[in-house]
């Protein structure tokens, strides 16, 4: 009987250690920084097509310090289970001008970004689904700011 109790105690202790560890992971991952694999052609030439591993910090977005030119992770407005990586082009109150269809010519459209919204675009304007298609996005969809690339090794360094 006694050995059962001690075994149960040990199991409980191990489990609580694991639980604490998972809590640490959750908190650092959602409040400090996390790593993400970024794929796709929309951010060429800044990010590679084949998949880069980047570090994302979650502090400046909570403080409202994310601004024009920053690379951000954004929850897609079309499918909330998907995360997009784009560059912020305009903040609230800005007027953005963009090519209506870069394949066809230089006819441009201007739009104003409404209150509390941001305008995001991919660096590769020919192959990117971004604010030009679905319009400005609420600031609340920002998930984090990309600031460092760790993979591939030859491109190791900070991103801006």
């Amino acid at each position: 009987m006694r050995q059962w109790i001690s075994a149960a105690k040990e199991v409980l202790e191990r489990a609580s250690t694991v639980a604490k560890f998972l809590c640490w992971i959750h908190v650092t991952d959602s409040y400090l920084l996390s790593s993400t694999v970024v794929q796709g052609a929309s951010m060429l030439p800044t990010l590679n097509f084949a998949g880069d591993v980047v570090l994302t910090e979650h502090i400046s977005q909570r403080l409202g310090k994310v601004g024009r030119g920053d690379l951000v992770l954004v929850r897609s407005p079309i499918d909330p289970n998907k995360i997009l990586t784009k560059r912020i082009v305009g903040m609230e109150g800005d007027t953005v001008t963009f090519f209506a269809d870069p394949h066809l010519g230089d006819y441009t459209i201007s739009r104003e970004v409404p209150k509390g919204h941001i305008w995001i675009q991919g660096d590769n304007m020919y192959q990117s689904r971004d604010s030009r298609h679905f319009g400005p996005l609420p600031y609340g969809l920002i998930q984090g700011k990309v600031f460092f690339r760790v993979w591939p090794p030859h491109a190791f360094g900070s991103l801006s």
Binding site: P114, K115, G116, H117, P138, Y139, G140
Partner: peptide, 8 residues
Amino acid sequence: AFSSPENY
């Protein structure tokens, strides 16, 4: 509950 699109 959701964060307001005008003020996150």
